[in-house]
Design a protein around this nucleic acid. Sequence first.
DNA 1: AAACTGTTCAACCGCATGGCC
DNA 2: TGGCCATGCGGTTGAACAGTT
Length: 291
Amino acid sequence: MKGGMKKGKWSKEEDNLIKNHIEKYGIGCSWQGLSNTLGLRRCGRSCRSRWLNYLRPGLKHGSFTPAEDRIICEMYRQKGSCWSVIAAELPGRTDLAIKNYWNSTLKKRFPRAAKSRRRRRRRRTGSTSSTSSDATSLDLGLEESISGTARNLPLVVCNEGDSATATTARHLPLVVYNEASATAESSSSDAGAVSAGSPVQARAQPPPLPAAAANEEPIAAVPVSGPVKMEPRTPPPPADETSEEMDVGCCPMSPLPLGFMDEPDLPCITMGLPHVACFDDIDSFLSYFDH
DNA sequence: AAACTGTTCAACCGCATGGCC
DNA sequence: TGGCCATGCGGTTGAACAGTT
């Protein structure tokens, strides 16, 4: 224990002390000051971490949904391991939770993405030339490859009942329906453009669902207009260690990469979303909407 | 039932940054 | 301008738990 500071797991009593104090008085001058005030004998950053990642109201502690998987993968592809940026797109999720989820689960599904991204990983070395510029330049390429159609399509995540949670993720054409609510709501990346609970925008109809899917995870779908390419699904190319692209295939009828559709524990998704045309990477998936 | 292995997640650590003096 | 301090962020670690043999 350094300098008499306590370390290790937090007790319920400590949690309650912090929670009650912040709810009543706020954080105050500093986290260290808060720790001293409460007599916690914890370092300030430890208190901050505990509050931000566990005690803060509005946090979601449950497992990640396929829609969230999709957002994380796409954001990781765009931004790399900027977990705080990714977390900003997933209300209720912390950067820590997302980072853990990626490292423990998603990274294994997309080893190529993890490898290529790791090579890009910016390291804050003090050199301005290395700060996020590498990722940004790559991101610009992606930005420009996405025309307005796909870029501005909304992302909606509808939870059970009518307490739909509308969240946003720029560039992500995604609508998630939930049979229980029997509604689809829309939002855009522009703050406040459409608030949760606003009248439904009939942008798309949910695909027909098998009865068994009704009580399962939210179903995902993407509205598609215009001609639909009817192509047999081609297997992804062999893993290329030098590729900068994520090893994710996509289908325009689903916001989920094909890797997810192959997931054996997501039968409702694979059953509800037929493969109409398939793509081996997200770029071609997104550019599909340009035509 | 016990030992072993794999997975998950919370906490910690180091580094960078920004504000203040 | 430079030093100090608090905070933010991403990487790593290790304990707890779950699954397997």
